[in-house]
Amino acid sequence: MPGIEHYLILSALLFGLGMVGVMVRKNVIVILMSIELMLNAVNLSFVAFSHFNADVKGQVMVFFVMTVAAAEAGVGLALAVAVYKKFKELNIRFFEQLRG
């Protein structure tokens, strides 16, 4: 029977993977995917705490996080599409040169 620490370690590893992805990758879309990975890791620790404390509030929080994550992905992708349409560029290095 895996205990709460198993789930928390899995969550920490997944969060670390997402964090490394944000720092290492150059494509804006892949960076957004890595952010989703981190949000999922946090959701996992919320659900684990909810299970091991038999408290439903953690799951309510996960529900809210999922909704905000979907909204964030929508806005992020819309901006990425708008930038690509204008500059034909998806590289994160390119975004530091934007002036006005």
């Binding site: 928390l8 370690i9 670390g16």
Partner: peptide
Amino acid sequence: LKVGGVSLFGIIVIATIMGSFSNILVI
């Protein structure tokens, strides 16, 4: 940034393992 990220990630994992030996995780 990469080295910093990986070490931060290691710290999170180690802190979780250390924390799992105390009883703060479940009420």
